[in-house]
């Protein structure tokens, strides 16, 4: 008997098919609505903000919530509401871009590794597992230290950070599917690897893979905010939510709205995605892994 190390291998979900009565529950709907809200804001922000983001509109820095400035003002006297709405563009946009990149690459490599097996699988798994053992924030720090921070660097760095995890997740799912008789049947029909991946494996792992993408989106938002908070993420004059917390940290001692609302924005986004995933109609096993 040889037993490998038990890992939290996700189970493939049953047929991803919409059936009558296939509904989101209440918590799921709330999560979805908040997520959609931020997505829409990210798109339309420039047209709905009450004041230009860079303009100093009030001489009272770190001001309270007033009728004129709904969410108060920041350390320079700029309108927080406008900056939070515009910040959605950076936080949501950058995170979405890099998580999409990471997951497409990770899932594709994972399926190839699972279907091919042999040395290619061993090589990819070893290498990416090793990459996985560099803490994500640390990797960000090192890269930013070496090349400086810009939007493309941020997107690529965070994509590289989450490829190994996505690879590992997709590979585990694909390995399970790969042992199923229908893949064997296709293989001895004479089908080639691209067909096996696209037609036999992918449709059966799509549900969990999308849920995983959601989870990884949350990790990316957290990482981006963390890096920005350390001053290594989005650089002035632009500001995502993490950078806004950093700018206004001086107001923390007296609980200025300028510190609180960017935090609230991050929390609503990430919590809503997590709630959505936990309440997906399809039963997808939740997993906690970075």
């Amino acid at each position: 008997m040889t037993h490998s190390v038990p890992e939290s291998v996700p189970r493939p979900a049953a047929a991803p098919r919409r059936k009558p009565g296939y509904r989101f529950n209440l918590v799921g709907i709330i999560g979805l609505s908040v997520l959609l809200f931020w997505a829409v804001i990210a798109v339309i922000a420039p047209w709905v903000i009450p004041y230009p983001v860079g303009e100093i509109v009030d001489y009272d820095a770190l001001g309270p919530m007033t009728a004129k400035f709904w969410l108060g003002t920041d350390y320079l006297g700029r309108d927080i509401l406008s900056r939070v709405l515009m910040g959605a563009r950076y936080t949501v946009g950058i995170s979405l871009a890099s998580v999409t990149l990471a997951c497409s690459l990770g899932v594709t490599l994972g399926m190839i590794a699972a279907v091919s097996g042999g040395w290619l699988d061993t090589l990819l798994s070893r290498f990416l597992d090793a990459m996985n053992s560099i803490p994500s924030k640390l990797f960000g720090l090192v890269v930013v230290a070496a090349v400086g921070s810009s939007l493309p660097v941020l997107v690529l760095t965070m994509a590289v950070i989450y490829v190994p995890g996505s690879f590992r997740f997709a590979r585990a799912l694909a390995v399970n599917i790969n042992t199923m008789d229908f893949v064997t049947a296709a293989r001895i029909r004479g089908e080639r690897t691209p067909y096996l991946i696209l037609s036999e494996i992918l449709p059966n792992i799509l549900g969990p893979v999308l849920a995983d993408l959601g989870l990884r989106f949350v990790f990316t938002v957290l990482l981006l905010s963390g890096l920005s908070f350390l001053g290594l993420g989005v650089q002035p004059p632009y500001a995502d939510w993490g950078a806004m917390v950093r700018e206004n940290i001086g107001g923390l001692a007296f609980g200025a709205p300028a510190v609180i609302f960017p935090c609230v924005a991050i929390a609503t986004l990430t919590i809503s995605v997590n709630l959505l995933i936990d309440n997906l109609p399809q039963k997808i096993r939740d997993r906690s892994d970075a």
Binding site: A15, M180, D181, F182, A185, E200, P203, N204
Partner: peptide, 10 residues
């Protein structure tokens, strides 16, 4: 043996 695993559920 098992049509459950021999037929692609998707």
């Amino acid at each position: 043996q098992s049509a459950d695993t021999a037929l692609n559920p998707a």
